[in-house]
Design a protein around this nucleic acid. Structure first.
Lengths: 105, 105
DNA sequence: GTAAAGTGCAACTAAAGAGTTGCATATGCT
DNA sequence: AGCATATGCAACTCTTTAGTTGCACTTTAC
């Protein structure tokens, strides 16, 4: 799960995912145009996304097609975000509790 | 939003959030015990979480209480993850489309 | 067959990040 | 007043990461 969080931490990589969301199955050179960096840099980002299983690739001749895989994103939403569902911030109430706790310590 | 993703990218910081999820309103020194690093390092992590608004703090005398704020997590789930809701991976189908596209290019 | 297109690999640089140590400051206790 | 507790700030080290440049390899087009 750490790999996924790390992969999503970079804005360029989120942008690449976003590109694929709009038009799936792009080649590397297609994806470079939107980013202000060299092809090799984009290639590295795509590799990180692929290692995190956020992207799946298929070769056809000399061309490599990139496909979005949203499954890991959904898993994080379900397994990780869900844990924080019930947590509403009630700072004042919580603070009171904490201070009461302090008294009796 | 970038700050939130970056803040969540570190396992120690996710662990700190997890601690607060179990028992809210902790002080810095309380939170150190679970992490294998110095107090100062934990303090830095907490500051990053605070800057990302994932944690809210309240001073009481010389003690600083930390409270979990799950709102940004929910916002990411709603605004960002939701965009990827409809994306099911159909690699073979997508590939076919990509290759057909290639023919006509 | 030769050139162009699409991609990968490796070495390097520069910047960001995690963690440490040392010192300072403020509060609470006796 | 004096000491212990709780935290913050700053400088430093080490590692990771983002990005570059240069070269190699394979496939397609002419």
């Amino acid at each position: 799960m750490d790999e996924i969080f790390k992969a999503l931490a970079d804005p360029s990589r989120r942008q690449l995912l976003d590109q694929l969301r709009k038009k799936n199955g792009r080649r590397l050179s297609e994806m470079c145009s939107d980013l202000d960096m060299t092809r090799q840099a984009v290639s590295k980002h795509l590799k990180i996304l692929e290692n995190a299983n956020l992207i799946v690739t298929v070769w056809s001749g000399r061309e490599k097609y990139h496909f979005l895989n949203a499954v890991p994103i959904h898993q994080i939403a379900e397994r990780w975000v869900a844990k924080y569902e019930s947590h509403q911030l009630d700072a004042i109430g919580e603070l009171k509790k904490a201070l009461e706790n302090k008294e009796t310590r």
